[in-house]
Amino acid sequence: MRNPKKAALLVAAMLGFSVGAHAANIDTSKRIHVAMVPKLIGLSVFKANEKGAIEAAKKLNINFLYTGPVTASAQGQVDVFNSLIARRFNVITTTSNNPTELAPALRRAMKMGIKVVSYDSDVAPDARDFFIQNTAYPEFGKALVESVAKYIKPDAKIAILSSTPDATIQNAWIGALKTYMAAHYPKMTIVTTQYGQSSPSQSLTAGLNILQANPDVTGIIAPDGAAEVGAAAAVQKLGLTGKVIVGGCSDPDSIRQYVKAGVIKESPLWDEVKEGELVMYVARLAYNNAIHKNSTFTAGDLGTFTAKDGVIIFSKPLIFNAQNIDQYHF
């Protein structure tokens, strides 16, 4: 038992050195238990986070566990948190189904001395130590608008296809994109907002209905993985490729065929794999008490990040288009 572990440690250490001197700054002497709890297990986007997290966990001497509920329910996540608390995990990282319901359980965890790092979709600020925001909301709002607005008339009519009416992060993005649109494309109007409930089939039906009921719509912004795929599929099925432009955000694997077909011109996201790595770096640093709510830190070869009131912005939007999409697989 012992020797392989030591060997693994040695390899990990060597890897750590091989990626650069930065990793050496992080104290990885004590092996810690870190859990990553997505909204639900079984979706590619979260799986991409896991992929990155596993890589980073090796370097950072982390015993990594990826676990979550089978339905996108807060109750399911809370049950998982409770079990992690009982199992004395050192750090819990999570992307929340909704910001309010998870808070009491996470506060309980913090009271027990467990560090909480949220990523992707935030929880209440007092229920976590750090939040890794995918991209700054105003920038992402801009990217979402530009993914469509560049390719249509400035006075075009736009539809929004989101996940659910109370989805936190989608509402934040929609707010940001409306602000940007009002400032830069004042003549553009949003004629309808529909919801696909994050379900591929309901998103497709909603997409078809939008296009049928609003024939003057020339652009659909769908800031949700299932919604963007549904909207793109609807455009393709109705033979409107090129006439209606779809934008939004989704992982590259699911939209690849639509980007290549020209239904989607650009689609902003961020590198989910690298985000998963950053989550592990922040988890390690938070456990070491090496970062504070307002500080700057280095996360290996990912570069330097700044925490502001506990919020760490991961990156600028990464925009997929027909040229670059084949470089990304997640």
Binding site: S201, Q202, A233
Partner: peptide, 17 residues
């Protein structure tokens, strides 16, 4: 038919709807 028609399927197909 679902997977052919929509071109996509996830773990919540069926149960989620």
């Amino acid at each position: 038919v679902f997977v052919c028609y929509t071109g996509s399927a996830t773990v919540t197909t069926g149960t989620g709807d």
